[in-house]
Design a protein around this nucleic acid. Sequence first.
DNA 1: CTGAAAGCGCTTACAG
DNA 2: CTGAAAGCGCTTACAG
Lengths: 323, 323
Amino acid sequence: MANIREIAKAAGVSITTVSRVLNGHPYVKEEKRKKVLETIERLEYARNMHAVHLSKGFSNMIGVVLPTISLPYFSELIEGIAEEAAKAGIHFALYQTNYQLEKEIFALEQLKQRQVDGLIFCSKAMSDEELLNWRETGPFILCQDSREQHFSTISIPHQEAFRCGLDFLIEKGHRKIAIGLARKNGVNSHFRLTAYKEALAAIGETYREDWVFERSLTITDGRKLFSEWSRMEEKPTAVFVANDQVSAGLYLEARHHNIDIPGKLAILSCDNQPISEVLGISTIEIKIKDMGRHAFRLLQKRISGHDPEKQIISYKLVKRLTV
Amino acid sequence: MANIREIAKAAGVSITTVSRVLNGHPYVKEEKRKKVLETIERLEYARNMHAVHLSKGFSNMIGVVLPTISLPYFSELIEGIAEEAAKAGIHFALYQTNYQLEKEIFALEQLKQRQVDGLIFCSKAMSDEELLNWRETGPFILCQDSREQHFSTISIPHQEAFRCGLDFLIEKGHRKIAIGLARKNGVNSHFRLTAYKEALAAIGETYREDWVFERSLTITDGRKLFSEWSRMEEKPTAVFVANDQVSAGLYLEARHHNIDIPGKLAILSCDNQPISEVLGISTIEIKIKDMGRHAFRLLQKRISGHDPEKQIISYKLVKRLTV
DNA sequence: CTGAAAGCGCTTACAG
DNA sequence: CTGAAAGCGCTTACAG
């Protein structure tokens, strides 16, 4: 395929001039510009971006690190990122980790090798302390809270939001409340658990470990959660789970077994995905797509040398029929 | 950041030798190899991949072109692609098009500029004829059927699969059957429509345009579909829709209005996502993730110079409670 | 406004 | 086994 030298020769100008036309520089006589453009068209020339990247030192590509894309939470987050990235003419590569540390390290190595200009961690397994070691490697941001001041973060105030949901349940008369968490060791789960313990303390209930369900992420997990609930001797009257997929599974399975909702079992979740609306499930709305959009802009700022900053995304209780 | 020259100097060897170590070439004295590795470690050296790509002429990165990632169909497809790509140590960039022609052209231009080594079209708006003009640009494959012999394709035999679903409905006594399609002008929709017309002809029913719902993709679309159904003077007794999201929306809304399913309204869809299992919706199972895996391998073959080939993914009728 | 030349950081025949 | 040198295809001060 043609390269810049051939274009220059064919158009009867210097390589420099071709490059100027390519990059939209001013100071090129209109006549020459036309000639060059014409030649490019005729020879079907396209720049070799590898050379451009080597020369310029960056690639206009960022990396998005996440456990899996098949959860609505993450695919919405990506949508938001993708939207802003497209506007800015920036590409992105996806690094699926399944929360495996080595996959996260792999992504960081890509950053080090300049494969990408920056990284967005949608969620991670690596500890903040460990990630701190990579600080000099290149710019990255987190879509979760961190007290580490060197990290730019965008997050939902999970503790506060979760507490808001718990208080709503309590206000509705519930005292026997179980919760479902996405991961055992995630940051978000940590904050939610804290909110849970605080809320229990506030109403004088004791914390029961068997009322904290873990690894609840999918519809299928929600269905399993119902089985566990129904096998319990002493049953919680309300279950507050991590996302609408879980609540959908739980709700549908419960309905299937003719459980009175919210009479016998109240259900609350987070996200406000379409499915929760169809099913009439009460939920805490989180604007995930917005978070993705902001995440991208935040990374852009870091890439262009701004100091780290912390951003917060708002949430909102959506009352429907399951509480 | 350190470059290969500094490593060479610090290790007391030539640049060539460092490169050999980096690339795992044989013929490097163990002693030197160790020394180089040590130096790399000490200086925290990482290759600048832009230079590697320029030198080698490829980037180990492919592009995945798709309308949106927030539909389960596509996110599963990506999962399959991602899985194989990770095994092969290949990255991928996502190009979301929303079926906009210029976005698809953009992706093809990236290919031309060597930004990616190849392209997987998960679904596209561009016609086969137009895409044919890009044949010389670089390797790409389609995840849909095409009679164009120059394209590698992997596909579900949509016409056959859809007919299988229709025959199942007919066998159950339905004659007034409506269908829902994802897009008006998609290839898949075309095949499904053909199957529909053939099935109607086979039972001597006339084709009614108002019984073909279009743009039915999401849960919300499924709910709308129910409203349309309920407003109809003459109601179809069965609706066969494009995916489990739509059938879920339709089913839930119908249940909400106390419609007897399948007595008053039979529902069938395609995919067999978890949600169809939870709701007990009959569906045609399509192994989308498998398709993604094979799609990646198919592209790999094209990239390494193999001739185009056509692959088919199997399907299976899953009988549950809605028919 | 224009061009010759150095530089980006690798890989890889080629010669030893 | 090893290294000097050419080459990948651009960009960008610098000098005019």
